[in-house]
Amino acid sequence: MSDVAVLEVEGLEKRYKNFSLRVSFHLAPGEVLGVVGPNGAGKTTMIHCLLRIVRPDRGRVRFFGLDLDQHEVAIKQRVGFFLEEAPLFRQMRASDVLKFFASFYPSWDWNLAEKMLQQFELDVTKEVSELSKGMRAKLGLVTALSHQPELVILDEPTAGLDPGMRREFVHLVRTALRDFHPAILLTSHIMADVEDLADRVAFLQGGKIALLESKTRLLQSWRRIRTRCRDLPWLDPGDWVAVEHDQANGELQLVTNRWNIALLDQLREAGLKDLEVFTLSLEEIYSYVIHPRGRTSATLSNNAHRWRGLAGGK
């Protein structure tokens, strides 16, 4: 596999009246990068900038080492895309849509397309407007993958799909990964899709990347520790993302993004006992990163005097 990054984004900026996007990241060959964020975070704007549906105000984008502005057509022939809600020419028959797409990709594989159509049980004689949302999404996926692209861009591919369809979709993407190892840039507000597929995860909020990390490392470095205590002991604030102390029943929950076993020793030295350690799901990690005030300020406000007093009293 080539060492050249499949996608390099440097200082990509797009400004609107009440919103501005500014991101930088890269994608290695065969890697799956999942970009998660709430509605309005800038995921679709970012995808539109990469596909030149929208022109960015600043920044540099290189695909396969080639500048996008100078090699747009050659680059796009190696890229498959699935746009949010799969907007595919509603007045055309599905078969005509496929023929239309095939015309632009020299590497289009009709055998692969037929195989996917059979798997999906898609009636290609119907007009796109007659297909259900799920079927349109499947058609969109066929158009995105049939030319065995080196990079696949999927923008909210499972939005609005029922759980069964979502599982099928994820399964097909996994099959593509196994068969021709594309790199994948996947944006979603559904954490489960990202958790299933991504090697690295980026949390996008307010047009900026709040966190970009390997999924494995994230899952390894975040932990929740639960114990009981009447009085909150002194804790190094640098080690903890969130501290939640229920003074009524004495339950204390500590969340860290720098997990190592030595933290347990520190807690025991601080007088805490019966420590239970829990792993966090990506969804929980996401909520701590995207809504840190929502998680900690409430707890801190309940215990603010204690927290500040203890920290100051070190």
Partner: peptide, 17 residues
């Protein structure tokens, strides 16, 4: 119509100058 229904985005995303 293609612009309002979104399919013009697909046209622009295709490998066409």
């Amino acid at each position: 119509r293609e612009k309002s229904e979104g399919s013009f985005r697909a046209l622009r995303a295709l490998p066409i100058s």
